[in-house]
């Protein structure tokens, strides 16, 4: 197990190098100059050129990349051009808010998605099944900003139950923390719930056609017992995979939902970094998001044996 984990972790390195390489060149090849943005529209070409030189942007791209990689390998992601502070510090500061939102959204997704998928499969071709599929299709298709604004309109402006946006850290009160979390978590979790429901339903439909399910039924066991005791265990791997992927995506920051709900997470930091062409911050953020994603996936893989004893990592 340990050996497998170590080899998988080593395997992450090329993935992260590739991410760093692609993100670096993609960002730098996109038109945009942080020096011009920083100095404002009235800046003279000479001032822009001077600032570019101060920032090291006049160096060839390969030199800039080499410098960045060698610093990153020593744990230094550089300083943000605009914030004037270490990138790592700015990112870490946003993690608690992002983590809260990701966990809450995942809860929403799992609580809605898994039961909906199971029941839809158990009652295949019923009205419930049809409804779940339609809602799931909607969930995947509806843009999250639209859903977010709709939720604000109904639950904030109309009913006055939740604030329109913002964030209160858990240290300032759990109830307030949750109050500010509900709407962004629902609008973010809804799409993931739809994906999880579809995946759960598909896996369940496959499992309930297996012989051992027929055997269980022929023994006179109730449908509830058949589903929960026999089928559920066997779809756990595929559900865990999709839940893990969802968590990785959610931890990477929810750019649009964070913007709609004025939520101070990683996603909003990335948006600002992109609109200002804050290269070190964009690169650092992308590397962090990619790292989180691959690590979550690794953890999910390592959890497989818990659900399926046939899987062994030697």
């Amino acid at each position: 197990m340990l050996r497998y984990t170590l080899s998988r972790m080593l395997g992450l390195i090329p993935t992260l190098i590739l991410v760093a390489l692609i993100s670096f060149f993609l960002i730098h090849l996109t038109p945009g100059d942080p020096a011009a943005v920083m100095l404002g529209v009235e800046a003279t070409p000479e001032r822009v050129a001077n600032l570019r030189a101060d920032m090291g942007l006049d160096q060839p791209l390969t030199v800039q990349f080499k410098d960045w990689v060698s610093s990153a390998l020593q744990g230094d992601l550089g300083n943000s051009f605009f914030l004037g502070r270490p990138v790592a510090e700015a990112l870490v500061e946003r993690l608690p808010a992002t983590f809260s939102l990701a966990v809450a959204a995942l809860l929403v997704a799992v609580i809605i998605g898994v039961p909906a998928g199971i029941i839809a499969a158990a009652r295949q071709n019923s009205v419930f099944d049809g409804s779940v599929m339609v809602i799931a299709l909607l969930g995947i298709s509806v843009p999250s900003f639209w859903l977010g604004l709709l939720l604000i309109l109904i639950f904030s402006v109309g009913l006055g139950w939740f604030p329109t946006g913002g964030y209160v850290p858990i240290s300032e009160g759990f109830v307030q923390h949750v109050k500010y979390l509900v709407l962004p978590a629902v609008s973010l979790g809804f799409m993931q719930a739809a994906l999880i429901a579809r995946m759960t339903r598909a896996s369940m439909l496959e499992v309930i056609r297996k012989d051992y399910i027929t055997t269980a039924r022929s023994k006179g066991q109730s449908e509830f017992v058949v589903v929960t005791k026999h089928a559920l265990k066997n779809i756990a791997i595929s559900v865990l995979t999709v839940v893990g992927m969802a968590f990785g995506i959610l931890l990477g920051g929810a750019v649009i939902v964070e913007t709609v709900f004025a939520y101070p997470g990683v996603g909003r930091l990335v948006v600002q970094a992109v609109t200002r062409r804050d290269y070190p911050l964009i690169q650092g953020a992308l590397l962090m998001i990619a790292s989180i994603y691959v690590i979550v996936n690794l953890v999910v893989d390592l959890l497989y044996p818990l659900f399926d004893p046939r899987i062994k990592y030697e």
Binding site: F145, L149, I152, L153, S156, V157, P163, T164, G165, T259, V260, F261, A262
Partner: peptide
């Protein structure tokens, strides 16, 4: 988001 400012 402008819509959120209006709602708030």
């Amino acid at each position: 988001e402008a819509g959120s400012r209006v709602a708030g």
